[in-house]
Design a binder for these strands. Structure first.
Lengths: 140, 140
DNA sequence: CAAAATTAGTTGACTTGGAAAGGATTTTCA
DNA sequence: TGAAAATCCTTTCCAAGTCAACTAATTTTG
């Protein structure tokens, strides 16, 4: 069943494996709502009231700016968000979550939470916490 | 500088962040050799002598089968591998690493090792080891 | 044994992602 | 102040990924 592969010894591989599993599972959950994982993250950031520029938002949701632009295009045409030019700097763009978007994010958050709970159940809260902390340290 | 974002509390987000950072950095290193991270993994698996089917290989290198097929097409045209029909089952395909491929994987492995070493230096061997173990448990 | 079902891999149509260039605005500085 | 440089986001063009359908080979089963 499980082979012994040389790549398995790499931390980069372990990370990729774990990420793929979790992301895939979360992605499947959100597909029921026709929502991409990254779109959910955008909604969460907006719903929390963070008024970010596209650039900062891209960083926050782990995307490259051109990719975010295209995702936002889709979200606009789906009626989830709309764009507004920032008054302080007309090059900047801010996003506003629509009422539909606000409704959606509530439902979707449940699914995302379930996904995280699954990890918590698998590892136990202590190891899950430790994982969270070590990953945080890694990305600093 | 660093905002407090609601998504940050999700383990799925921490994993995505860490993976993005490490994968991006590794990808940049391998770009010097015109090699994709996944292509390197394919080479490692082959070089270790594992004679897998395309399906099993896809799983091992964390790709979907159609994506692997296309990657292998490129690797074939780059002279890194070639395909061979399996004798036991003519539907199956095995890959053979060419001499060029064998040469390449040696050089590339150094870079990949450097990337892992960077993580090790950042976390210390104890935490790095712990991370490896927890991730392993998560994907079981 | 032969038809039906399953399995392995690929192909094709479509969507998404990425690097580099482009237009618009703002900032810098001589 | 105004020309040059920098910044922000988007666009464009091309590469890579995904889903579903397809071909070929093998296995199952009536």
């Amino acid at each position: 069943m499980s082979h012994s592969l040389p790549v398995q010894s790499y931390l980069s591989y372990s990370l990729a494996t774990a990420h793929r599993k979790v992301h895939g599972s979360l992605s499947k959950r959100l597909k029921e709502f026709n929502v991409q994982v990254e779109a959910w993250r955008v909604m969460e950031v907006l719903e929390a009231g963070n008024n970010l520029t596209m650039g900062d938002l891209a960083e926050a949701v782990l995307m490259n700016p051109p990719t975010l632009t295209k995702l936002v295009d889709r979200m606009v045409s789906d009626g989830i968000v709309h764009r507004r030019m920032a008054s302080i700097d007309q090059r900047q763009v801010n996003l506003i979550l629509t009422e539909l978007g606000k409704k959606r994010v509530q439902q979707i958050r449940e699914q995302a939470q379930l996904e995280d709970d699954a990890i918590l159940n698998k590892l136990g809260s202590e190891k899950a916490d430790l994982l969270h902390r070590i990953l945080g340290e890694l990305v600093q």
